[in-house]
């Protein structure tokens, strides 16, 4: 049951160089060409999941990236990890696309590659971090999609079982391929890249696709045509303020809770009652 799998791999600016990022005052976009890029860490888990599926069922792993042309090193890294083929979508016309436009472009490329059984992405990126592209990609491709997947099992030809992590618990799902999944970092531990993998990387097929190669509506892509538009940008002062907070013990405890929430940590106390639906549960 060989499977053709596309893994979306996003090169992102290396966080170690965030301090060197500047803003173009006219286009209000991030100037990051000079910053070295790394593979989005969550995407390595996506590649690992694809490798595990290929080991079990056979097939082909194709990486797909939409980025400026200077990310070749990252493409080679993904091939060294074990992917079979790579595509890079690169064109000045793509620049500045929001998630709507980005997912549209990626979807058109996946359609062009054709015959895809599974699309795997990481659950979020280190730079934008919106987690929106996987869901929107699924919509464009008109296939079922889930994100924050912590378990993925292919039962047979077309039946798959998934677990997704939700607040305070998890949900279980059944689905049929083809589908798109965004995997959580909890799902696996990426294997080490081997030296043999490194030596094979540059010999693997690698293709660049531009606007002319894809069947795209030019009026729906790029900075100007994205539905969401960037307004003002504010660089934050990162020095620690060391603001002293005094108060009653209740006030201090509440301050901690409020800031945990503001920091994105879930403190919701609503417990979940376990329930299994079975096949017919959703009538």
């Amino acid at each position: 049951m060989a499977l053709k799998i596309v893994v979306c791999v996003k090169p992102i600016p290396d966080p170690a160089y965030y301090k060197d990022i500047t803003i173009d005052p006219v286009t209000k976009t991030i100037q990051r060409e000079a910053i070295p890029t790394i593979i989005n860490p969550a995407d390595k888990h996506a590649i690992e999941e694809a490798l595990k599926i290929k080991e079990k069922f056979g097939g082909k792993i194709i990486t797909l990236s939409m980025a400026p042309p200077n990310v070749i090193k990252n493409i080679h890294e993904a091939l060294a990890m074990g992917a079979d083929e790579a595509y890079l979508l690169t064109d000045k016309k793509f620049a500045g696309s929001d998630t709507w436009a980005t997912s549209y472009i990626l979807a058109k490329a996946i359609e062009k590659i054709g015959g895809i059984d599974l699309v795997i992405t990481g659950t979020e990126t280190g730079d934008g971090g919106t987690s929106q592209v996987p869901s929107q990609l699924g919509e464009w491709l008109k296939i079922p999609h889930l994100w924050n997947v912590i378990e993925f099992k292919i039962k047979n030809e077309k039946e798959v079982y998934l677990k997704t992590k939700i607040e305070n618990g998890f949900m279980e799902w059944k689905c049929k391929l083809p589908m798109a999944i965004a995997v959580s970092r909890e799902i696996n531990t990426p294997r080490y890249t081997t030296i043999m993998g490194v030596m094979k990387a540059k010999k693997k097929p690698f293709q660049k696709l531009t606007f002319d190669d894809l069947n795209l509506d030019e009026k729906r892509i790029g900075l100007v045509n994205s539905p969401t538009q960037a307004g003002n940008l504010h660089l934050l002062d990162l020095s620690r303020k060391g603001k002293i907070i005094k108060g009653s013990k209740e006030e201090l405890a509440q301050f901690i809770i409020d800031n945990l929430k503001a920091g994105g940590i879930s403190v919701e106390a609503d417990p979940i009652i376990c329930s299994c639906e079975g096949e017919t549960g959703n009538e």
Partner: peptide, 17 residues
């Protein structure tokens, strides 16, 4: 070469962990 740099990176990741 690029392969040698990638090789170094792969070994370094193993060593770091």
């Amino acid at each position: 070469s690029e392969e040698q740099e990638m090789l170094r990176q792969a070994v370094r990741e193993f060593v770091d962990h």
